[in-house]
């Protein structure tokens, strides 16, 4: 038996909206530690890793590990039937082929119950090695979203070069109408951590990425006020949105390599 009760349906809506365009179906892995998910996009260029720790739910019950194959787009549609502040309860029997979703209004005067069919999904689990990154940049998530959008829509760029030095982080593109760059400098004061740009750097690093994936990752912006970019030479970028202390959505993106 699996049961997980989440105080606000809104969180699950935001998570699904953040990942459903990149991966349309995935296995939710349920264990005593919580709910996790890993999936690559069909071109094997990017990967989503989700963790919702059990302590983010109250209660959380998992008698045995379960793998729930879910169509994320269908689940996102179903979650739209919940109001943002509805209490979400997910339940599944062991060996069940359905996931039950229950939405309860805060005043407890409305209860919606849905049964979602599960599917068998063959998915490879990728082992992601522990990496000491050359540079870790933390910035406001809205700023990252804005930069990706402006460089894509404004210049029509396909590839973005991200260069990180002690002075700042520079995003450059060359596109159909010309070229452009946006540089963020490290902020002096850290009175408001969520609004700060902080660069932790062991050595300067420059990498090239497909901009459209970064724009897709930015759909996770509502999940967190800040985002971190972890970069090392010739290894995948990690874009992480932390959900308070109860979990994260991480996106991995393979770099473009100079011929």
């Amino acid at each position: 038996m699996f049961e997980a009760r989440l105080a606000q349906s809104n969180l699950m809506k935001k998570i699904l909206d953040a990942i459903k365009d990149l991966i349309t179906e995935a296995n939710l892995e349920i264990s005593s530690g919580g709910i996790s998910l890993q999936g690559m996009d069909s071109s094997h260029v990017s990967l989503v890793a989700l963790l919702m720790r059990s302590d983010g739910f109250s209660p959380f019950r998992c008698d045995r590990n379960l793998t729930l194959g879910v169509n994320l787009q269908a689940m996102a549609k179903l979650m739209k039937c919940a109001s943002n502040d509805d209490i979400l309860t997910m339940t599944a029997e062991d060996n069940s082929d359905t996931l039950n979703l229950q939405f309860e209004s805060p005043a407890q005067d409305k209860l919606s119950e849905f049964e979602m069919k599960l599917m068998d999904i063959d998915s490879e689990h990728l082992g992601i090695p522990e990496t000491e990154y050359d540079a870790v940049i933390r910035m406001p998530s809205s700023e990252f979203q804005r930069i990706c959008r402006d460089l894509g829509a404004g210049i029509g760029g396909e590839s973005v070069t991200i260069a990180c030095t002690k002075e700042g982080v520079k995003f450059s593109v060359t596109g159909s109408v010309g070229s452009g760059s946006i540089t963020l400098k490290q902020t002096g004061s850290v009175d408001k951590p969520a609004e700060s740009v902080v660069i932790n750097m062991a050595q300067p690093v420059t990498l090239i990425f497909a901009l459209r994936y970064l724009n897709s990752f930015a759909k996770a912006t509502p999940l967190s006020e800040s985002v971190s970019l972890s970069m090392s030479r010739e290894v995948p970028l990690v874009v992480e949105y932390k959900m308070n202390d109860t979990g994260y959505v991480r996106f991995y993106l393979a770099p473009k390599l100079e011929d």
Partner: peptide, 14 residues
């Protein structure tokens, strides 16, 4: 020009 890398080249299937 730059070639798009794939994650399979960086991560191992477990």
């Amino acid at each position: 020009t730059a070639t798009q890398g794939r994650l399979d080249n960086f991560f191992t299937v477990s």
